[in-house]
Design a protein around this nucleic acid. Sequence first.
RNA 1: GGCGCCGUGGCCGAGCGGCUAGGCAAGGGUCUGCAAAACCCUGUACAACGGUUCGAAUCCGUUCGGCGCCUCCA
Length: 491
Amino acid sequence: MLYIYNTLTRTKEEFRPIDPSLVRMYRCGPTVYKHMHIGHAKSYVSTDMVRRYLAHIYGPDHVMFVMNITDVGHLADDSDDGEDKMEAQARRENRSPFEIALYYEQSWFDDLDRLGVMRPDRVPHATDFIRQQIEMTEQLLQKGLAYQANGSVYFDVHAYEGRGVPEGFVPYGGLSNRKLEEQQHGGRIAVFEEKRNPQDFALWKAAEPEHSMQWYSPWGWGYPGWHLECSVMAQYYLGETFDIHAGGLDNMFPHHECEIAQSQAANAKPFVNWWMHVNLIRIGGDKMGASAGNAMTLKQMLEQYDPMAIRYLILQSHYRSPQDFDMESLAAAQAGLERFRRAAERLRQAVGDDADTASVDAMPPFFTEFLAAMDDDFNTTIALGALAAGITELNSLLAAGNADPAGLLAFYKSLRIAFDQILGFDLFSRPIATTQNNALTGQLMELFIELRREARARKDWPASDLIRDRLKERGVVLEDTKEGTRWTMGE
RNA sequence: GGCGCCGUGGCCGAGCGGCUAGGCAAGGGUCUGCAAAACCCUGUACAACGGUUCGAAUCCGUUCGGCGCCUCCA
């Protein structure tokens, strides 16, 4: 039984998809105007893990995961003179906003690929759904839940509230648990007098002539509001009501709240059954993020660290916990991951090539513990603990040298499913170091090992150590075991 | 002003009424020519002070310290 914490109810609830033959999940994707940073990594790795686990339970072909790309610049704040993020970046880089979007989208996917984040099943772009966004705006106008002002259209939160909240629907503020009248308005942002009420939000914004991204609409030239694209694209691919909507905690209000209001208002149906919110990365106890100015790009980090170590570090904490990020814990994660890798490689050599097609009767106990932890709101911390215990057990077995083949095969299968399929570490699918090179390399290594064996036989330790040290300088590691000397190459 | 979160052993980080978390680091050991790898052993931690309870890191209260959201942000 899978339990998922639902932000709507603030409790873990047994997950029941609307249609088990197609579990439908959405997450808000990036606004592509700059490189990805480590904070994004936690969010995307976490939702990827959720998606992978759902695929494990319901089958890979029975999960539909959609993530949008926001390639329309949105205003940096809610006032009229706020600057469009994409336009601003375009000016800085002396490129068009369209080029900016294209360039940074590619950059994001490059980084996500390296982190082992699977591509979503659908990746719609906001600019490809302008027509649908206009249509939803028109629907809301017709229903009297939106109003025009100077070529812009705003969602009327008070009118929406005034209609009452039917059973099963979420009132405005119901997700983030806030009451309209208790919010501070006009403090840090100027109240925009075009709006009837401060909490009204834009569905469509009139564009200034110099704004390069604009489209023609019934209200003149403009561009869509910030929240509308997700409602529209989620509905297009997943239907009016779907199972899971995931995203960062910092998007809970106002973004997700507005999505709910729009979609419920337009469709007169509940929008989403489970809301999942990934907590944030901190640096030195403070939030890290675009506006905090302390964000480190992932590309900078990947110059020094294995992307999978970053993934491992992220999954070592729970997705709903804030995570303090520093280089020391990243190094620790890398060390831990390497132990897993070495074990995986030894295991793969032990089970041989047809292990993938062989069948297994029973999975080892640690795998059951792993699944139980995952079922408990994706507790990857506990799940990884179970796997660590499994690895220790496996290493003992391998070291003893008398493990029965069926047992090893069970380890192989379960570790492969847990580590690679579900958690997304690329532990087993890498080529084995000793065979990835060409035949000549292998033959030369055989020669070195033989020379060293002879040196050791005559107890010529300086010669023996010279061979080992010099090879190590070149990234080749020799290890003496009971079965003889093994060699491996680093990355 | 409103809503909410956190303070766990050297570091990271689960747990959230009774049973070893785990990882990394550190120390000791086994193996070994040495090394590496691997395995075994070692820390009795829960901000402070009260309270509830047979029993609290886990519940309640107070205090101290830190943080988030209410504004674009993952």
